[in-house]
Amino acid sequence: MAALEHGAAQWETWSTTVRLVVTDPAALPEAEELVRAELAAVDLACSRFRDDSELHHVHQTAGRPVEVSELLAELVAVALRAARDTGGDVDPTVGAAIADLGYDRDFAEIDAPAGNSGTRLIVYPTANWRHVRLRGRRLTVPPGVTLDLGATAKAWAADRCARLVAAATGAGVLVSLGGDIATAGPAPAGGWRVLVQDRPGEPGCTVRLPGGAALASSSTISRQWLGPHGVLHHILDPRTGMPAPRVWRTVSVAARSCVHANTLSTAAVVRGRAAHGWLARQGAPARLVSQRRQVYATTGWPL
């Protein structure tokens, strides 16, 4: 996929594809080592699927404040900022809701349809992101609340890995974690070439990103599974605890950080019909694919 003069590596983690491209092939081994180590650290800090993760330990504290690592504090802070800035559209406290819908283990392990198990009464804590307290590294999660940092942690990791590799090697770098793309350092001539397409057969286009730019896509057709209420996708509306209505198949946004791009694309899926105007008013370069595969773009998106 990469141009021949680049160095590229690709592997699977977090049930998604990691792609690493550097402008200097000689920098690839060091770059890959850095990225693998960083992703392992993030996973150990905030995975909700691991019993040995720091976040799992926090969930066991039943509402008591706990001193967490600098890394987890940063990941939680990023998630809370995303919640604040989107008016709660991207809320990390949906962990219990999405687990109850069946996404309670690594996505690659969700292979058996749960089917319709009949009527169930599910009561969720009324707490939301506003009830999570983070003072420095002192974190308090209300009893019964499970944090899902996945929406922002992956994008944050892409940003961080790109910056680390560029700083360590001096090469231009692109890091893609399941399509959440961050770049740093000098870009190749003409920019990074990125295919924006949810999956084969979906509307697609290729754009060029300048160095330092980021691009994220959120989808209602990827990461689907058959849950107790039918076919579900992984982007929940925090207000209902259910998957957001399928107004858009895919929303892609470019920004100067992957966290920013991902926060906007995720919130856009949650906002549904209002998303295009909301993104346009902010001037965000964005591309939205409707359920009927019609493509809408804001003025900042190249046509």
Partner: peptide, 25 residues
């Protein structure tokens, strides 16, 4: 870092190899 709020993207109609794909995640 350069005073612009958003990155400036350009379109690319050429075929060939791409550096990455951004799809749903």
């Amino acid at each position: 870092d350069n005073g612009s709020a958003w990155p400036e993207l350009s379109s690319d109609d050429g075929g060939g190899q791409r550096d990455a794909t951004s799809g749903g995640s």
